[in-house]
Design a protein around this nucleic acid. Structure first.
Length: 229
DNA sequence: GCGACAG
DNA sequence: ATCTTGTCGC
């Protein structure tokens, strides 16, 4: 599919942070997802090899609402940008761009493994990727980057607000009864209520969305065969 | 200065 | 994320 690169990926911390504040102004917080015409939901993930300094990137496209894998694509690139909290997208997106350029389907929605709006400058990985692909995205992270919240009830579906400086930037969602919650925030072209609802619909059995689980299996097995471990 | 800190 | 086996609990 077509990808708008938007900018360079070799930046200093200050330049990258400035760029994030600038790009954040372009994020569309209104819902553009029609849950009734939703057919293809994608999940992305990246695995790293400490030994070879390589990134294994992948996307799994699943049918919705039955959640079966219909198409997958991968890419292997050298890691250039280091992991810096708040700048994750500069580390992971270059490889993901390769993946989406090779993908023969344009997903209706992407659930990203990381934060969206729940970011210090309101441009987490999900927002950044959504802008570049111009596709609705949701950030679904396994742990917190910023914000305060109470713990939601232990029952699946329970949620509590994630607040940062008084702004509601996401929800802490119990995607499965009795396990630690996930952090959901909007990426691009969707609203928080719809985002939480769709993430829940993608978690019929486990804590993480089936999209994320499929993408994780994809890149992890790819790394294993490439590294011969 | 100190602690926090997606993957 | 990765380094790594078994083990506690529903």
């Amino acid at each position: 599919m077509k990808v708008n690169i938007l900018h360079s990926w070799e930046l200093s911390y200050t330049r990258a942070a400035d760029l994030q504040r600038e790009l954040a102004l372009r994020i569309i917080r209104e819902n553009h997802v029609d849950r009734h015409s939703l057919r293809h939901v994608a999940g992305t993930d990246v695995s790293y090899s400490r030994a070879t300094n390589r990134c294994y990137c992948g996307v799994s496209v699943l049918s919705y609402p039955d959640l079966n894998v219909v198409l997958e694509e991968t890419a292997v690139v050298e890691a250039t940008f280091p992991y810096i909290p708040g700048l994750l997208s500069f580390r992971e997106i270059p490889g993901l761009i390769d993946v989406f350029e090779a993908l023969r389907i344009t997903p209706d929605l992407i659930i990203v493994d990381g934060q969206g709006l729940a970011h210090p400058r309101r441009l987490g990985l999900a927002c950044h990727l959504g802008l570049i692909l111009d596709i609705p995205t949701i950030g679904c992270a396994k742990s917190r980057l910023i914000g305060e919240h109470e713990m939601p009830a232990a029952t699946k579906g329970a949620q509590s607000d994630l607040l940062d400086k008084g702004e509601k930037v996401g929800v802490v969602l119990r995607s499965r009864t009795g396990v630690s919650p996930v952090y959901v925030s909007i990426g691009h072209r969707i609203d928080l209520t719809t985002a939480a609802e769709l993430v829940l619909n993608c978690c019929p059995k486990y804590r993480l969305p089936e999209t994320t689980r499929a993408a994780h299996r994809l890149v992890y097995s790819l790394m294993r065969e490439h590294e011969q471990q």
